[in-house]
Simulated scan of single mutants.
Amino acid sequence: MGKVFLVDVAKCNGCYNCQIVCKDEHCGNDWRPYAAPQPETGQFWMRLEEKTRGQVPVVKVAYKPVMCAHCAAAPCAEICPDDAFVRRDDGLLVLDPNACTGCGSCVDACPQGSIYLNAELGIAQKCTGCAHLLDSGWEVPRCVDACAHEAIRYADEGEFGTLLDGAEPLDEVGGLGSRARYLNLPKRFIAGSVVDFEADELLIGAGVSLIGRGGVRLALDTDEFGDFEFDQIDPDEYELSVTASGYAGLTMAVDVRVADRCVGDLGLTRL
């Protein structure tokens, strides 16, 4: 079955430790035949992607660690004219720096941009899963070891059990047999508040419902601050309805196909 990376983005707080220790391990260190030194700039074999979501006053920041997915059906390995990619028994796909001629075909073939061309050395480079450490007794790569919140884990597929049932690859490598799986990848959210502007009051317990074109129906009540939030919903066009006793209802269209949406303060009028 082999090893897999399991990344839970809900646990990632953006500390950048994974990205930093990858640089520490590979910059200035020659681990051939596993890997030649990584340049100090221009390459991130482990990179932390940061995305701001929503609009004021509801703004979130999502973090996503991204490494080579070590795909089972890797386009980079298939296109390489030098057979420089080596599949290990543990599932890691290593790019042999001694066999690579630096043609750059693999760089263009990688759908998530995880392979880099080192112009100085004349070779392509990427994440090795710290294979040199694993072969010398380490149980996990440096990025996994450095993650204080266990947002990144590495183990045999069987050890993760049912956790992998809800895990998915990144869209860029979907269908390629990615050995990097993700939990809690951000979808979309719709948030806002319900208020009585005339009385200058927040409306607690107002009913808010959401109907999607795909048939999704969700409902909740506003909290003690008059706020509501539908989180982890699919990108879609929705009909948002608000009701409260003694008030005229309100219905509006909310489109989150492209981005999350904070609808702001929704004012209801007394009957």
Rank of each mutant, 00 (worst) to 15 (best):
A119G: 00
A119C: 00
A119P: 00
A119T: 08
A119W: 01
A119Q: 04
E120I: 01
E120Y: 03
E120G: 02
E120L: 04
L121T: 08
L121Q: 15
L121W: 07
L121G: 03
I123R: 05
A124G: 10
A124C: 15
A124D: 11
Q125Y: 06
Q125K: 10
Q125E: 13
Q125G: 08
K126Q: 15
K126P: 13
K126L: 14
C127Y: 09
C127W: 08
T128S: 09
C130N: 09
C130P: 05
A131F: 00
A131Y: 01
A131M: 12
L133P: 00
L134H: 08
L134R: 08
L134Y: 10
L134P: 10
D135N: 15
D135H: 10
D135F: 06
S136E: 14
S136D: 13
G137R: 07
G137F: 04
G137K: 05
G137D: 05
G137C: 04
W138S: 14
E139F: 06
E139Y: 03
E139I: 05
E139H: 05
E139C: 01
V140T: 13
V140G: 01
P141G: 03
P141S: 02
R142M: 07
R142F: 04
R142Q: 09
C143D: 10
C143Y: 06
C143Q: 12
C143P: 01
V144D: 08
V144E: 07
V144L: 09
V144P: 08
V144C: 09
D145A: 12
D145F: 00
D145N: 07
D145V: 00
A146P: 04
A146T: 04
A146H: 03
A146W: 01
A146Y: 01
C147T: 11
C147A: 10
C147M: 12
A148G: 00
A148P: 00
A148M: 11
A148K: 13
A148E: 08
A148I: 08
H149N: 10
E150K: 10
E150R: 10
E150Q: 09
E150Y: 06
A151D: 00
A151C: 01
A151E: 00
I152G: 03
I152F: 02
I152K: 02
I152Q: 07
R153V: 09
R153A: 14
Y154F: 15
Y154M: 12
Y154C: 14
Y154N: 10
A155N: 15
A155K: 11
A155C: 09
A155P: 09
A155R: 11
D156L: 11
D156R: 11
E157I: 11
E157M: 14
E157K: 13
